[in-house]
């Protein structure tokens, strides 16, 4: 497959296997993928198809057996554990299905967590936390503990935590899997807004076609390979799915102004 020179994220011939007892299971098989900056991509597929493994590789949480993964000029497969941790702190935000907030901490303290490993002062951290909670509409609830918040509010806190370091990429693993439809739509609209207005590149694993409809592009993964996309989302109806939806050529809407840096933005 030809390389997309404009690709922000690029995977080439990526293989990943896991050992289960005596059996070696290949989860990803010679996978190629290009994603441009500012795209909102939904990754769909049946359970065990390899979509979460793909997300983990993209976030530097796991390493490929073979192949290369480049993100924003960083070749992840060549980076050490500490370098990957630093890279995650600066460039990636994670949003999980079960929110994964720390129960003993307030919303503000949860959001602040990624900044503790930086050299940022307490005052600056507090300003950033305040701004991030405003973005997700929860500034009034900054003192609430997770068990004092609804599921949707907890997921918005998790999104604020993912945003706090002003990352290039948001990786979302079933972010609406535990939410009712109305709340899920609110969270998806928030992600869509972050993509549209702030230019965040978002990759979202989901089982839910209605959630996928919020993305610009949908890729289907099955048996460790990327299959053709059967349809495009409602927000990118004009675009045509590719026979092998491994490469996306649709740049962000030029009418959307490119977002300024994070602190100024929020």
């Amino acid at each position: 497959m030809s390389h997309d020179p404009a690709a922000f994220i690029s995977l080439r011939r990526v293989c990943k296997s896991y050992q289960r007892g005596s059996e070696k299971i290949r989860v990803l098989n010679e996978l190629d993928l290009d994603i441009r900056q500012g795209e909102f991509v939904a990754i769909m597929g049946p359970s065990g198809s390899g979509k979460t493994t793909l997300l983990n590789l993209l976030g530097g949480l796991d390493r490929p057996d073979t192949g290369t993964i480049r993100t924003g000029g960083h070749e992840l497969n060549r980076m050490g554990v500490s370098a990957l941790a630093k890279w995650r702190a600066e460039h990636v935000g994670f949003v999980f299905q079960s929110y994964n907030l720390l129960e003993g901490l307030s919303a503000a303290r949860n959001v602040e967590l990624p900044l503790l490993v930086t050299r940022m002062s307490g005052t600056e951290r507090a300003q950033r936390v305040k701004a991030a909670l405003e973005v997700v509409g929860l500034s009034e609830r900054h003192k609430h503990k997770p068990n004092q918040l609804s599921g949707g509010q907890q997921q918005r806190v998790a999104i604020a935590r993912a945003l706090i370091s002003d990352p290039d990429v948001l990786l979302c693993d079933e972010p609406t899997g535990d939410l009712d439809r109305e709340t899920a739509n609110q969270v998806l609209k928030l992600l869509h807004q972050l993509n549209e207005a702030r230019g965040k590149t978002i990759l979202m694993v989901t089982h839910d076609p209605l959630a996928a409809a919020f993305a610009n592009h949908i890729i289907h993964v099955d048996k460790g390979a990327i299959l053709s996309a059967p349809h495009t989302s409602a927000h990118s109806a004009a675009e045509e799915s590719q026979p092998l939806a491994a490469s996306f050529r649709s740049p962000p809407d030029p009418a959307t102004p490119h977002p300024p840096a994070f602190p100024a933005l929020i």
């Binding site: 976030g59 949480l61 554990v81 500490s82 941790a85 630093k86 995650r88 702190a89 600066e90 935000g93 994670f94 999980f96 994964n100 720390l102 967590l113 990624p114 490993v117 935590r161 993912a162 370091s165």
Partner: peptide
Amino acid sequence: RKEFGVLKTIGYDNLT
């Protein structure tokens, strides 16, 4: 363990 896993996803290294 999950708490530590979350911290690592958001940039905490093994040493921290």
